[in-house]
Write a protein that binds this DNA or RNA. Structure first.
Lengths: 354, 354
DNA sequence: GTGAAAGCGCTAACAC
DNA sequence: GTGTTAGCGCTTTCAC
């Protein structure tokens, strides 16, 4: 592998000139630059990243802190990672996939102490994430996919839960539904202060209220079995619910089974939608479920971009919220007949459904 | 961030001694070593990977060449990546996630020319993968998850398709089925010489033959719609088929719908199994599908381990084949009545079902 | 068993 | 506009 000295001698210039010609760090005569470029080309020269990094204190390597898979399907997390890697790659950066196994802070301390990475991309940020404080204090540049309770001036890209909830509620309300139920993620996820669970919970409630829809969100099934049970209890307590939004894929499986057991059909008797699930997953269902699909790839891209922006210069902190995309499936329809106190008339008052 | 000089001076030794004490590269008096260790500890010293790599020509960084997502569900690929990253991490290595976007060879040339990585982990290896020749020629250490047609002495970890097919066929035969159909991946995947498609195709045929099962594998549906059509044509042409193994998740969705349209039920009228799909995905179905689940995490781990073994010393080339795991679901059962020329008797001859 | 010094390949002062 | 030189932090001869 040729070094810059080989390039310099072949182009008949000093190494510093070769370096400058290649990097544009100082003015070089056009003719000289041309000679150097050509020599580099002919030799197949590639700058050694280690040497460059050692000197310049910048490696152009980013670390993506990849959480141990727990909640959800994993497909979403993968899209973050690959999209971030692609975006980084386009901008001349590399992405290190750093799985978090033990103590997050200790691992972060280790990773950043190596001098290997210029910055860190945080995933699965909880509302009071301890890693944020550490990175801030250590002066390590970072950006978040997700966000803490009050992200303040920290770069982050996250789902716009308010818009997502609004769109989902509008979809359901537009079909004529008057009462919506929402199954959040499992209590464990909730207890871990997992942002999406908490924010989606709040925003769906607010959006339903704003739209004048009656609303139930007492259930947090984390498995197919719990999903089925939750649905049965839901219908028992609220027989007038005609639409249901579910966060957990597996819970949705249970709901669908319970719906069938009851002799109901989707969407005739229940409008069912998945929230924060990949359309890829929604296609596995029968009927294909309407989904609020998270903009995973875009968040990954944005996370990488804003981190690189930060590394490059003094951009102001960026906060980007991107709503989920409504992917209509075959599980959405008008409310079933006889679901409310009155029988037929839909789109009636717009007032509070009791 | 303290350097080794800080450690050396605090421990009152020369830099070289400090280095030796920390790395064990040459004998150091126990007392001295202790002093150095303690100094390092007190200072929170972390060796700079760049400096070390520049000198030693070894960075302890591995690159995982991550293919642009095309076939399959992606969940499997993600498990490779995370498992490989975890295994690498446990062995003191880092994993770079390198998405392949443009010309694979050009990108490989670039990546390996940077001096950043010690070795490369190849995913989605096709039967005649061009990257292999390049890496061999360039002398870059690598291992494969998957394998070429004749991997020869190249380290690789792959699915044991023969054992997988044998187990799947045994499962079906054990339930009394006499005729099995197999839906392979889409023709495009096949044409791309995607190993799993071709090997699974061959091995299922061989296993069925060996088990004395009649066998049909004329279909390669790549979507739900094609899956449904394929199923209809299959039953028309082969009304005595009672068991079906499907490679493509989406095709399975279509099959299930077509089964229902026909008034059939699973598993009463058809035993359906998914091949090479995560159990996570199989749970999304109704009923929960029996699956031959690929050992993704183990393959990722093995791939990383064998690459690191190669980097560390002169181990002989390793070839590890791991079978898929049969995860029984609710989609397996005895063959439906009236499916063969004779009516009732199952487990009869064991001879060739015509 | 320990220390001094060279140098990995590059960038960035600093002279000219 | 270009060349010379001094390191970045580490490992590794080579003396002692």
């Amino acid at each position: 592998m040729p070094s810059i000295r080989d390039v310099a001698s072949r182009a008949q210039v000093a190494v510093s000139t070769a370096s400058a010609a290649l990097n544009g760090t100082r003015p070089v005569a056009a003719a000289t630059r041309q000679r150097v470029r050509q020599a580099a080309e002919e030799l197949g020269y590639r700058p050694n990243l280690l040497a460059r990094g050692l000197q310049s204190r910048r490696t152009r390597i980013l670390a993506l802190l990849f959480p141990a898979p727990h909640s959800g399907f994993g497909l979403t997390e993968m899209r973050f990672a690959t999209a971030a890697a692609e975006a980084a790659s386009e901008l001349g950066y590399h992405l290190l996939l750093s799985p978090e196994t033990g103590d997050p802070i200790e691992e972060l301390r280790h990773l950043t102490g190596l001098g290997l990475v210029d910055g860190v991309l945080l995933m699965e940020v909880s509302l009071d994430d301890e890693r944020v404080g550490f990175l801030l204090e250590a002066g390590v540049p970072f950006s978040m996919i997700g966000r803490t309770r009050k992200p303040g001036p920290i770069d982050h890209a996250d789902i716009d839960f308010a818009a997502t909830a609004r769109d989902a509620v509008a979809h359901v309300a537009g079909l004529g539904h008057r009462k919506l139920a929402f199954f959040n993620l499992s209590p464990g996820t909730y207890a871990a202060q997992y942002g999406p669970a908490i924010r989606a919970g709040e925003e769906f409630a607010a959006a339903a209220r704003a739209a004048g829809l009656a609303y139930v969100d007492d259930f947090r099934p984390g498995s197919a079995e719990e999903g089925g049970q939750a649905f049965e209890r839901l219908i028992e307590a609220h027989p007038d619910v005609t639409a249901l939004a579910v966060m957990d894929d597996h819970a949705a499986v249970g709901v669908i089974a319970a719906v069938a057991r009851r002799g109901w059909r989707i969407p005739r008797d229940l409008t069912l939608m998945l929230v924060l699930s990949s359309a890829r997953v929604a296609e596995m269902f029968h009927p294909r479920l309407t989904t609020m699909e998270p903009p995973s790839a875009e968040l990954g891209r944005l996370g990488a971009r804003m981190l690189i922006d930060r590394l490059r210069g003094d951009t102001p902190p960026q906060a980007r919220l991107v709503p989920c995309r409504l992917v209509p499936g075959d599980s959405s329809g008008p409310p079933r007949k006889g679901s409310s106190e009155a029988g037929g008339k839909r789109k009636a008052t717009g007032g509070m459904g009791s």
